[in-house]
């Protein structure tokens, strides 16, 4: 019996794990390391209508239990992604989450319309939370009205379910979650990176050429868990949880907080085998918790009556 399969709008996953957008390219680099068909799904790097070169380097910096990145949405553009990148994913037969970004509403709509038509794309993930590009979508990610408007417009043109990727750089995550749910979002994914900075003592300047960057990795996990916990109780659409997941225990924690599936980002850099190793370890953790199927634990930290009795 498969104890790990989860089902979300547009995503029938044999296990709840997918690599997070931007941390796995378009899949072919890591396909040299392991068989991608082991994954529950794959989220590809943000696509924009036109190609983007991205920010100057240095684009990454290490931080305690985390990292900063300011890649700047570099990608070859929707057309090339379709002709040169997506076909590589076909043999693995796993659902594909297409992350899209843009500057104006029209950019998102155009990218959404084209990508959602593609046979290999299972769902769209609207990136309204990239902190590294001025006008890179974050303007939609911090104002509930703008996020809702964009979600509505994309929903109109998309032939596949739409997930909205939320930014943690807001004061009330529930408000954002509810706004996009009302606008028709089929799911949420959260969290994107937190805005941070590191300064080099020698040069006395920020380490990143972009000065600020997005903080990811285990350092942000408690923030992600708290936000998923809050948002999942405020909406009824499912959540793809992410932020600092390194182990199978972290996956379970995200799901107890309210996530229905979990994305793994930064962990891939520390260990290219992070995703398959986490998947292989999930059953052990379920056994230790006396859980027969992983979907039982979704929202387990706040749903009444599913908490195991303390006598065990």
């Amino acid at each position: 019996m498969n104890r790990l399969n989860v089902s979300l709008p547009g995503l029938e996953m044999k296990n709840p794990i997918m690599p997070a957008s931007g941390c796995f390219g378009f899949g072919k680099d890591y396909a040299k390391w392991y068989d991608l068909s082991l994954l529950g799904a794959v989220a590809i790097k943000a696509a924009t209508v036109s190609p983007r070169f991205g920010n100057p380097t240095p684009r990454v910096a290490e931080t305690e239990s985390g990292m900063l990145n300011a890649i700047g949405l570099q990608n070859p553009g929707v057309e090339k992604i379709i002709s040169e990148e997506l076909p590589h994913l076909k043999p693995y037969g796993i659902p594909v989450v297409a992350n899209i970004a843009g500057t104006a509403e029209e950019d998102y709509m155009e990218a959404a319309e084209i990508l959602s038509k593609h046979e290999l794309v299972s769902v769209l993930e609207l990136n309204i939370s990239c902190p590294n590009v001025k006008e890179g979508g974050i303007q939609f990610g911090t104002a509930p009205e703008a996020a809702a408007r964009l979600t509505k417009m994309v929903k109109k043109v998309s032939s596949k379910p739409v997930y909205v990727k939320l930014s943690p750089n807001v004061s009330d995550i529930r408000e954002m979650a509810q706004a996009v749910e009302e606008a028709g979002a089929d799911g949420l994914s959260m969290i994107n990176t937190l805005i941070g900075m590191r300064i080099d003592l020698k040069s006395r300047q920020p380490v990143l050429a972009n000065k600020t960057g997005g903080l990811s990795g285990p350092a942000i996990k408690p923030v992600a868990v708290r936000m998923i916990y809050e948002a999942s109780q405020a909406v009824s659409i499912p959540i793809i949880g992410m932020g600092g997941v390194m182990t199978a225990e972290d996956v379970i924690e995200m799901m107890l907080a309210g996530a229905s599936a979990v994305a793994v980002g930064t962990a891939n850099f520390a260990n290219p085998y992070a995703c398959p190793e986490i998947i292989a370890d999930l059953e052990r953790v379920l056994d230790s918790m006396d859980v027969s199927h992983i979907s039982e634990i979704i929202g387990g930290s706040w749903k009444p009556c599913k908490t195991p009795s303390l006598s065990r």
Partner: peptide, 17 residues
């Protein structure tokens, strides 16, 4: 030389014109 994330071509950290 460039600062790297993944080291395997996936993250676009080490890009050069």
């Amino acid at each position: 030389e460039e600062r790297m994330g993944c080291g395997v071509g996936a993250c676009f950290a080490c890009v050069c014109e």
